[in-house]
Every structure is written in structure tokens, then in C-alpha cells.
Amino acid sequence: MSDPLFDEVIGILAEAKRRPPDTISPDSSLVELGFDSLDVITTVFELESKFKISISDDHVRTLRTVRDVVEGVRTLIDEKTAHA
């Protein structure tokens, strides 16, 4: 089943590393995709702007896979919606 949030986040990750989205899967590790520490903070910055969320430093340190990123973003969007 298609998951629009996955597609959007993968699009941002693909753009960040200049690679085709179809080379990125939910289980891809960020390190394997070539994300170093500067790539991670830059991409998180993009995600925060795009989804109007705030991702804590502690949370960023736990991100290992694409799935971690998507689920983290989803949780924060859900929390924001619940508080709206």
C-alpha cells in the first residue's frame, strides 16, 4: 500500500543525496545512503520546515534508517495535529 508520507520523506532524502528515489527503501540505513552528520542535520532542517515540526537533538541522535526518519516525522505530525 502506498504511504504518501514515506514517498515525501524519501523524496527529500533522495534530493539531499542526489539519487533516484527508487534506490531508497524503508530499511535503507542512512549511513549506507551516504548521509554524514552534516547531511543528517541539513535534512532534518528541511523536514522541520516542510512539516512544521521540531525534532529534538536526542531524537536526531537515534535516527538510523529511513523508517526511523519517517516514523519520527509521523509521530510529530500526529502530536501536532492532536494539539491543534
Binding site: I41, V44, F45, D57, D58, V60
Partner: peptide, 20 residues
Amino acid sequence: EAMRVISSDTCRPFCKDRRG
């Protein structure tokens, strides 16, 4: 802040629970 290297509490170099 955007660099994400600043500790949210204090500075504890060489400790297991250091946060920046």
C-alpha cells in the same frame, strides 16, 4: 542550535552520558 552539538543541560566531557 542548528548544528545540534549543544548540550541541553551541561558539559560532561568523556562521560558515557555526555550530550554535547
